[in-house]
Structure formats: C-alpha cells, structure tokens
C-alpha cells in the first residue's frame, strides 16, 4: 500500500502535517496547477498503515485519512515491482 494525496481535492490546510505521528507530511513550497500548496510526503514508506494493513487486516493509525477535511488522503495498492527507495539504517 502507499499513501497518496489527491491534488484535485486538497486545499492545503496542512492538518495532516499536524497529526501524523511520523511527520511524513511536510508543508509544501510549490503552488500546483490549482494554485494550492499541497503538502509533500517525506519518506512515506515509514507509514505504519502502508506497511502493516494487510498483515493485521485492518486500518492502523489512519489519522491523516480521518482528519483530512477534503477527503484527499487515501492509500492505494502498489503495482507489482514499483520502484522503492530503500533506506538502510545502521
């Protein structure tokens, strides 16, 4: 699963920035085509729900999805073999 922000709905309120316990959402800096500064994702692979939803069979955390007043944040299934950024922590 991966986290996506629907740019056609987001109004740039940054409530997700306020609630994500991992700080995945960061305030954006660039205007999009609708004139809105959409938050950017910082290493979204850290999201618990993306990693563990299938394993637990239920939604974990999900605060961003619930608080987003514009219904713009969801998770989508990844295509097989989608390129990933892998971070190795020593």
């Amino acid at each position: 699963m991966k986290l996506v922000i629907d740019e056609s709905r987001c109004k740039g309120c940054n409530l997700c920035v306020l609630v994500c316990p991992y700080g995945i959402f960061q305030e954006g800096t660039e205007l999009n085509a609708r004139g809105i500064v959409v938050p950017v994702l910082d290493r979204p692979e850290r999201c618990t729900n993306c990693r563990l939803q299938h394993l637990y069979g239920r939604v974990l955390c999900g605060l961003c999805h619930m608080i987003c007043p514009d219904q713009a944040i969801t998770w989508v299934e990844e295509k097989p073999f989608e390129p990933h950024r892998v971070e190795v922590e020593f």
């Binding site: 109004k11 619930m66 608080i67 987003c68 007043p69 514009d70 219904q71």
Partner: peptide, 18 residues
Amino acid sequence: RLPHIYCTGCGNGSVINC
C-alpha cells in the same frame, strides 16, 4: 461533488469523515 465548498481547514469535512 468534491471538492466541497468548505473553506481551507474547516472542521466540517472531518466530521463527515467520522
């Protein structure tokens, strides 16, 4: 119908979600 008419950051949208 989305995006709705609510202002940026209005809490009403979150209540709809809940």
